[in-house]
């Protein structure tokens, strides 16, 4: 008996494949195996002998099972290792599938500035691209025959309408809709009847801003522009105001920033002046407030216009404005 057990153990240890091991298991430990046979006969034995035989069978069974399990897990480890090795992959090959597309650089900068203004409590408003003469000019204190209309070559449409030459009409619409106090910006597409070249487009993007409240001062305007431009350019900027004429503001300013390229020492970007003209702004002309039903004795404010297209060109160092409306994916895919 013991010899049989020893030889079975030896066979378990000697098995070289999982199949071989399995056949030993079936022969010895299976339902019809040797151990099962031994147990079957036990009923015929005397009680004392039976107890001794039972003990022997249990011991042998435990020894055999443990040997079998050890051997079996050995085979499994080897098999797993072989499978894992066979599953070797080169992860340096390019990932299949489509890359995400991208948003137009104008959209990206526009959103960035919108978010900045929203964090300061400004509403983001939208206005029509086809405007009335009233909203584009008259309500902004630019009556017909005003020389300021020469500054903005206008596309006229049949039916007496026009394509907005600036986003300023949204100021008027914003004041009419929301009333004072008011903090708003209006980004959008504007049109000027100008020939297109590397630095001129008849279709470009502006962002108009306005704040109406009680006692808004030039000091507030300077603070605001400095804060805003610092956030746009991600660094401290030095600004200066100088007189500029825009009929919808009084006083009106041109705002320059100290050249970010040369720091003010002079370079080709700032035409050696140390300053770069960035945006027109001013205190809202009382005539404009009145035209929008706001009492200038009680309310006043400031307004400014930011050239989004220009900002995009500065941010990404784009030398030719025509790329922006080109629809060329070799260009647009870079953003």
């Amino acid at each position: 008996m013991q010899d049989f057990v020893d030889s079975a153990l030896a066979r378990i240890h000697a098995a070289t494949t999982a199949d071989e091991l399995e056949s030993v298991r079936v022969e010895v430990l299976g339902r019809k195996g040797v151990i099962a046979d031994l147990s079957k006969d036990m009923g015929k034995l005397a009680p004392a002998e039976r107890a001794e035989r039972g003990k022997f069978i249990n011991t042998a069974k435990q020894a055999l099972e443990s040997a079998w399990e050890g051997r079996k897990s050995g085979f499994e480890r080897v098999a797993l290792a072989a499978r894992l090795d066979a599953e070797w992959l080169d992860l340096t090959v390019p990932a299949p599938g489509r890359k995400p597309g991208s948003l137009h650089p104008i959209t990206q900068i526009q959103w960035e500035i919108e978010d900045l203004f929203r964090s300061l409590g400004f509403a983001v408003l939208d206005g029509p691209e086809v405007e009335t003469e009233h909203h584009n000019f008259d309500a902004l204190n630019i009556p017909a025959d005003h020389p300021a209309r020469d500054m903005q070559d206008t596309f006229w449409l049949e039916g007496g309408h026009l394509l907005r030459t600036h986003t300023s009409p949204v100021q008027v619409r914003g004041m009419e809709k929301l009333g004072p106090p008011l903090r708003m910006i209006a980004p959008g597409r504007v049109f000027r009847n100008e020939s297109v070249d590397a630095s001129h487009e008849h279709t470009f993007y502006q962002l108009e801003g306005m704040m109406i409240d009680r006692n808004v001062s030039v000091g507030n305007l300077i603070y605001f522009m400095k804060t805003l431009l610092g956030a746009i350019f991600h660094r401290e900027v030095t600004v200066r105001l100088r007189p500029g004429f825009f009929p919808f503001v009084e006083p009106g300013f041109e705002l320059d920033i100290r050249c970010l390229i040369c720091g003010g020492d002079g370079c080709p970007v700032c035409k050696q002046s140390g300053w770069v003209e960035l945006l027109p702004c001013g205190l809202v002309n009382p005539k404009v407030l009145r035209a929008s039903g706001i009492d200038p004795a009680e309310w006043n404010g400031f307004a400014f216009g930011l050239g989004l297209t220009r900002l995009v060109m500065m941010r990404y160092a784009i030398g030719d404005i025509r790329w922006l409306q080109s629809g060329d994916l070799r260009f647009l895919g870079q953003f």
Binding site: R98, K99, T107, G327, L332
Partner: peptide, 10 residues
């Protein structure tokens, strides 16, 4: 979804 934004004239 892989689309790139373009901007065309009006």
């Amino acid at each position: 979804q892989g689309f790139t934004e373009v901007s065309n004239y009006s």
